[in-house]
Design a protein around this nucleic acid. Structure first.
Lengths: 125, 125
DNA sequence: TAGTAAATACGAACGCTTTCGTAATTTATG
DNA sequence: CATAAATTACGAAAGCGTTCGTATTTACTA
C-alpha cells in the first residue's frame, strides 16, 4: 500500500473519519476552527483527493458529499509503521517507551496498558 | 520549535546520528544501501541542510565534514508529538496501544515496559 | 609541471502541494 | 422570470523538495 497523504489531505481525512460523510462547506468550517483556509482551497484539495481515490463523492445533489475511501485503523497502522521506520529506525519499542515516558498517563490508562501486556504475555505461552 | 525535515533530510540526520560526523561521500554510500541516490544530489541536500542549520560543517579540509546540529532525542520527541497530533488526534495512549498491539514484543521488552509503568505509578503518589 | 581524480558550487528543470481568482453552473427567492 | 446566493470547475502562480548536468576548485601523482 502506497499511502502518503499530504498534510492537508490527512487533516481532511481526520475530519471525514470523525464526522462521516460531509460536504465541502462542512469540512471547510471544521478546518477553519484551527486555521484560516479559503473555501475554494478546501474544495480543490478534496477534488484532488477524489482523483487519487482517497475519498469518494456522491454528486447526486448539487452539494457533493465526500466520504473517506480509506479505513481509519488501517491508515493509522500504515502511517505508524512508516513513522517507526523513519524516526525510530524501525524500533516500535523505542517509540512506545518514549511515548509512554513523555506522557502523564492516568491510572486508568496505565491499567489498560497493563491489561494489554498481560494478554500479550499469555499469548506467548 | 519549528522542526520539519523533509524525508531526505531526516534520512540523512539518521545517518549522522548513527555514525557521527561524516563526509558527503560516506553519507551517500550509506544512502545507497537502501536506494540509488546521485552523489551531487546528496551533496546538494546536505548543503541546504547546512543553510537551514540542521547540520554544521567543518570546511577546514577539502572534504567537508558534516555534523547533525539537532539532538536526536529532542528531534524524536518533537516528531513524535506532531505525529500523535496529526495521526492519533492528540492521543498518545492510542498510539501506544496500537504500537504495542501490532508488535510482537519479547519478554524482555515487556518487562522493560512494566518497569516503566511501575515507576510512573509510584511517581503519581 | 601537466594531467587526472575527487570534491564543491551553481543553476536549472520537474513534480507536487497549496492557494486563490474567476468563470460557469445550479438552486433558491422575491 | 430575474436576480442573488451557493457551489463546482478551471487554471495559474508560488513555494518547496529532489534530481542532475556542468563548471569550478583542490589535491594528488607520474
Amino acid at each position: 500500500m502506497k499511502f502518503k497523504p499530504s498534510d492537508s489531505e490527512l487533516e481532511i481525512l481526520q475530519i471525514l473519519w470523525k464526522q462521516g460523510a460531509s460536504s465541502v462547506r462542512s469540512v471547510n468550517e471544521e478546518l477553519n476552527k484551527n486555521r484560516e483556509v479559503g473555501y475554494t482551497t478546501t474544495l480543490k484539495i478534496m477534488q484532488i483527493m477524489a482523483e487519487k481515490n482517497l475519498v469518494t463523492r456522491n454528486t447526486d445533489s448539487r452539494t457533493h458529499i465526500y466520504t473517506a475511501a480509506v479505513n481509519e485503523a488501517e491508515a493509522r497502522q500504515n502511517l505508524l509503521e512508516k513513522f517507526v521506520d523513519t524516526t525510530f529506525r524501525g524500533s516500535a519499542m523505542s517509540l512506545v517507551m518514549q511515548a509512554l515516558g513523555n506522557h502523564k498517563a492516568s491510572a486508568e490508562e496505565l491499567a489498560e496498558i497493563k491489561d494489554l501486556i498481560r494478554k500479550m504475555e499469555n499469548d506467548a505461552d
